[in-house]
Amino acid sequence: MARRVLPGFGLSLGYTLAYLGLIVFLPLAALAVKASGIGMAGLWKTISAPPVLAALRLSFGAALLSAVINAAVGLLVAWVLVRYTFPGRRLVDALVDLPFALPTAVAGIALTALYAPNGWIGSWLAPFGIKVAFTSLGVLVAMIFVGFPFVVRTLQPVLEALDRDVEEAATSLGASRLQTFVRVLFPLLLPALLTGFALALARAVGEYGSVIFIAGNIPMKSEILPLVIVKQLEQFKYADAAAVGVVMLVLSFLLLLAISLLQRWSRRWAER
């Protein structure tokens, strides 16, 4: 395309690229260069140190589990919000975004206060021998909190756009409510559900603020990967921190890729 009709192409794209280059690209390049400075062997040595490995396992394990739970609960909440009317529905709908809006540090100390052995919820669980705060279970709770809105918000528009005719057709063909849901609705919702799942997972993996207060941060037990980076920084082990950061970033990239593939896949049905 030789000529452009609307003005401002050079200005807007130039500004966009310069801004992205300075704010995003240059710092990320610094990260990559710093990490590559220690070589593959060094990278492996850093990653395979037992505390790092344990943190890696905890971060991704808990994040996966939290995303699974959020997918299930998110599906339920989205369904209830779209399909049923009950007093205060609008308020509840607005409340779903709370984890987006509430600063993570605030969420962290609030969850800790609730789940500490003497907290509102913790004191109920303590008699059963269940400890949440200062254990890996606390990490999971915080991750569920921060990742909760994603699944609900990706599912809601899809559920709203869903043609009731399809359900009615299934019913008229003799399917039960459960059969209709499992065989007709669920396949239509699956792409959006997976997208929400991936977004919640990505968020939970990287989460820092809300987790570190409730986790107790016991090395090998309840220490998450971002905290490992912070500790390495505090010890001025910049290359190690960069290495762990790169590993996280690569995994984030893979998640981003998965999300875009899932979105492409989900469009198979969306565009009729």
Partner: peptide
């Protein structure tokens, strides 16, 4: 470009801070 604009959303906040330390910190 669209993916690049979205990128900060999928980077852990800690890594977001780290990259600036690596760029502008004493050893950066």
């Amino acid at each position: 470009l669209g993916a690049l604009i979205d990128l900060p959303f999928s980077v852990s906040p800690v890594v977001s801070g780290l990259i600036y330390v690596l760029l502008f910190g004493a050893q950066g």
